[in-house]
Design a protein around this nucleic acid. Structure first.
Length: 467
DNA sequence: AAAAAAC
């Protein structure tokens, strides 16, 4: 066990955890004085890119984009004053004419949503508020609703903005879709189009968020292809994600032909503000006890606990509640309205610890999340054969958003979970900080050193919903 | 041997 651990452990003389983003990685303060880590993006222009209409391949301020003043007012209201890296590179390419497809990759919490939301708003004709002109697809009900909220916030000064969520139970059975912008999940979107309750004939832009997941996952992939087949052939296609495994990337290039591309090397995918730790549990049974001991640290801010199955989410929630800890659980077996209420409570801080499945692994932006716990290491497929590096990155990306700091703690307890985590650490070229259940003072210190430093960060830094 | 996503 010892040498297994050493493969993923920092040397003892290294500092336990950096509590701020390292100075040398500071590239520039964004709107609220938070730092954005520097990283190199590789921009690859499409063959037919027409540069005469878009001399600015990169902008350093939102003003340079020439967006309508109502949209700029929305950006101010959200406290976005300076574009993030992905925004400065991707936005000019996406809003230029003629519209060009885009495949864009950027770390979690660096402003991908605002980038495609601005593009969508720039392409909508608000004099036709009930004519669908933009469609955005997401892999979960929760993410679709969140994106809808961002559009409504950034677009709050646009007259006659109508955004509708195409998720189960949200669209009127009687009237169908009556909005210029539609954000939804693929199954519901397909259903609405088939029942002729969603007129797709005038759509100008299709955005697929978490695109690698959307195009690759069994079921989701076919649904996306089918939805695209129902849309106008000339539609602009924008694909976004923090992760793009090679195999999916090749498919993405066929799905969005002749696209401009923004890529990152996977060694550059990890967010520096997130201190990645692991807890060396003696056996599987002890995981629960250790989780309970961490409760005090979890509630310094808000925390998300990821487990493999819906059943264990329910089970752990029930046990913790019995043991006197306030915890809620959210997964896909719950009814829609219940899921909405649970996430709203978590966003508002009414609940501070949320135990969930991979349904919330991607995209969800709650700025108060300072700790993510991988109670189970994510594995690909039901066979549990291969570690799921992508899901790991998305899960820990629920913290450390927009330059904030955060902690992730992954639970390991046997050779298999050790091997899985070391595979992931090796994949991203990172060191993990070891925590021992036998030295609780040290564990608390390592975690607190990171989380308490977030005090230095402005509380009013924007999250996806502008609060 | 999972989760998600449609009625």
């Amino acid at each position: 066990m010892a040498d297994l651990a050493s493969r993923i452990t920092k040397p003892a003389e290294e500092p336990a955890a950096s509590n701020t983003v390292p100075e040398d990685s500071i590239e520039g303060a964004n709107s609220v004085g938070l730092v954005e880590s520097s990283y190199d993006v590789e921009v690859k222009l499409a063959d037919l890119q027409n540069d005469t209409d878009s001399p600015l391949y990169s902008v350093t301020s939102f003003d340079q984009l020439g967006l309508p003043s109502q949209i700029n007012d929305g950006l101010l209201a959200m406290n976005f004053k300076k574009p993030s890296k992905i925004q400065e590179k991707a936005l000019p390419l996406m809003i230029s004419n003629p519209p060009t497809n885009m495949i864009a990759q950027s770390q979690s919490g660096t402003g991908k949503t605002a980038a495609f939301v601005l593009t969508v708003l720039s392409r909508v004709d608000f004099t036709k508020p009930e004519q669908p002109q933009a469609l955005l697809l997401a892999p979960s009900r929760e993410l679709a609703r969140q994106i809808q909220g961002v559009i409504q916030t950034v677009g709050q000064f646009c007259d006659n903005l109508k955004v509708e969520a195409a998720i189960p139970g949200a669209v009127s059975r009687e009237f169908g879709v009556k909005a210029s912008i539609v954000v939804g999940t693929p199954g519901t979107v397909m259903d609405l189009v088939r029942r002729r309750q969603f007129d797709v004939s005038q759509l100008k832009v299709l955005v697929i968020d978490e695109a690698d997941n959307m195009l690759d996952q069994q079921g989701l992939g076919e649904q996306c292809v089918r939805v695209k087949g129902m849309l106008p052939k000339t539609i602009q296609i924008l694909l976004f994600s923090a992760t793009f495994p090679d195999k999916v990337y090749n498919f993405a290039k066929k799905f969005a032909p002749n696209a401009n591309e923004i890529k990152l090397r996977h060694q550059e995918l990890t967010v520096k503000g997130i201190s990645q730790m692991y807890m060396d549990c003696p056996d599987e049974g002890k995981k629960y006890d250790i989780l309970c001991k961490l409760y005090g640290l979890m509630t310094i801010g808000s925390s998300v606990i990821f487990v493999r199955t819906r059943e264990s989410a329910n089970e752990i929630q029930r046990r913790m509640e019995e043991d006197g800890h306030k915890v809620s659980a959210l997964h896909g077996a719950f009814e829609g309205a219940n899921r909405d209420a649970l996430l709203d409570d978590f966003r508002s801080g009414r609940s501070k610890v949320l135990i969930t499945t991979n349904v919330l692994a991607r995209g969800i932006d709650v700025s108060s999340v300072s700790m993510v716990i991988n109670y189970d290491i994510p594995m690909k497929g039901a066979g549990d054969r291969e570690p799921d590096s992508e899901t790991y990155l998305h899960r820990i990306g629920r913290t450390g958003r927009f330059g904030r700091v955060g902690v992730s703690i992954s639970f390991v307890y046997d050779k298999k979970s050790f091997d899985a985590l070391s595979y992931i650490a090796n994949f991203y070229g990172i060191d993990l900080i070891q925590l021992s259940p036998d030295d609780w003072d040290e564990t608390e210190k390592k975690v607190q050193d990171v989380i308490k430093s977030s005090r230095a960060r402005p509380e009013y830094a924007p999250n996806a919903l502008g609060n």
